[in-house]
Design a protein around this nucleic acid. Sequence first.
DNA 1: CGGATTTGACCAGCGC
DNA 2: GCGCTGGTCAAATCCG
Length: 468
Amino acid sequence: MDKGWGLVLENSDQVYGFNSSPRLNNNRNKGLIMFPANSDGGEDQTAASPPSDGDHTVAFREVDFFSENKRSSNEDNDVVKKEKSTICKELDINTGLQLVIANTGRDESTVDDEMSSDAGDKITRIQSVDRKSEEKKQENGGEIVPRQFLTNQMADEQSNSSSEEKTLCGSPKNNLEISKNKRIGSEESLESPNKAPRLDPSNTVEQSSEAIMRKARVSVRARSEAPMISDGCQWRKYGQKIAKGNPCPRAYYRCTMAVGCPVRKQVQRCAEDQTILITTYEGTHSHPLPPAAMAMVATTSAAANTLLSGPLSSADGLMNPNFPARTIFPFSTNMATMATISASAPFPTITLDLTQSPNPFQFQRPGPFPMAHQTFDPAQIPSIPQNFGQALYNQSKFSGLQLSNELPGQSSHQTPSFADTLSAATAAITADPNFNAALVAAISSVIGGSHPSNNRNDTLDNIAERYS
DNA sequence: CGGATTTGACCAGCGC
DNA sequence: GCGCTGGTCAAATCCG
């Protein structure tokens, strides 16, 4: 993984100029996005073989949602490498299970105390017991899945894990849901486009690491009539399927920026709300990326790391099993999911929900940014490399955003909450040329980006103190 | 003509 | 073992 991770501000022109492929300029594979065009828009927005947007005739302003005008720094690269290295170490011990174990342990402690009071014990057991049988036990009710929330959605997910997208769509108000993998085979099948044999537990660390990275998914939900989100990478559609429970077809794309790049993404519209486009990224690019793609890559990769970084560090204070999920995430009813770490899905998935506002992409002006009423503590999500977070933070500042970890109940006149940040980012995205930076900043917050001006640990401590 | 998309077929995992 | 489902392949087709 030689791509950069840090983000450095650059001229956004470069971003938009990246996709030079004629295809990308016409109605094919145009990743893009999300804003209904202004009345005077006039841009040709025919969707290209969208998974399901054939019915959408509205013209939209094409926007490179994730195109980024930043470059990575070597420092950030190092940081990421370190984190990956950590994962590898874990994998070295137990390649196939580590991811699940790690996530399970972390999430259960992060999410729900009632269900995870015995987190440590579970981790131990899971490590020494066949995961399949373990899951079976849990699913049979003999043992509650610790990482899941006590929500209806959770029940739904346990009974129906066929589609993470569906799950997410079905309960937009759940801000954080955590679970674990259920299927390893399918995950591993993705390891190789050519149906490579399943991973052998004795595989090299590198292989396992890659496999794990591929398992992690980052899903982005956003209202968009456009067929696909532009993220700066070049994608080639290689399949389309009608997934159960969703009349909208799911399109499969593969990164074509480099031969053999394992990154794939799925694009599908939400069954409940077809204006919501769900883009799920999976894998790690095996090639240098253009600035335009940095943001998304950094985001998804960081998110993936978040999911895969192993048992949460106690330093983060997230291991406290006494955290009532709903207390930590007292989301208001009028706000959709901000960030979701899904476990019922076949893969550990973190969902970045950008559908907060009725239609965040219809925002007319950049500021003042709308303040969300819900709060989301980024600290509840395992951290990503500090430098990365710093870079994003700096970027966010550049975009006129402020990141914070406001606690639930805290007055918004202090620093904006995560939700605020995301909302702000969303708003900025809709009207600010630097929207990319804003988005990245917001997302980075979701996935744990840190920044010096916010006392993340203090926030956690406060939470722990308040709710433990 | 080259590259991307379409789409039916195929494969593997999972549940019954 | 069989059927269902998700994911992928690859030939046919489309398009600039």
